[in-house]
Amino acid sequence: MSLRLHFVCTANICRSAYAERRAPTVLGTGFACSSSGVQARPGLAMDPQMAAQLRARGIDPTAHSSRRTGAADVRQAGLVLTMASWHRTLILEEWPDAVTRVFTLPQFVASARSTPFAELGTTHSDVIRAAYRHRVPARSVGDVADPYGQGPEAAAACGLTLDKLLIELGDLLTPPRPPRRSAD
Rank of each mutant, 00 (worst) to 15 (best):
M1T: 14
S2F: 09
L5R: 09
C9L: 11
T10N: 03
I13A: 05
C14I: 10
A17P: 05
Y18E: 11
R21Q: 12
A23I: 07
A23Y: 04
P24I: 06
L27G: 08
L27P: 00
G28A: 10
G30I: 12
A32N: 08
A32C: 09
S36H: 06
V38N: 00
A45N: 11
D47I: 06
A52T: 11
L54H: 03
I59Y: 05
H64V: 15
S66T: 15
A72S: 15
A77S: 13
G78E: 04
G78N: 09
L79W: 03
V80H: 00
T82V: 10
M83E: 02
A84V: 08
A84Y: 01
S85Q: 14
V99G: 04
T100K: 10
T100D: 15
R101F: 02
T104M: 00
T104R: 01
L105F: 07
P106S: 14
V109R: 07
A110L: 02
A110G: 01
A112Y: 01
T115M: 03
P116T: 11
G121W: 00
T123Q: 01
D126S: 10
R129P: 00
R129A: 07
Y132T: 12
R133N: 09
A138N: 02
R139E: 02
G151E: 11
G151R: 11
P152S: 13
T161C: 13
L169Q: 02
T174E: 04
P175R: 06
P175I: 08
P176E: 09
R177Q: 15
R177H: 13
S182N: 05
S182I: 07
A183T: 08
D184S: 14
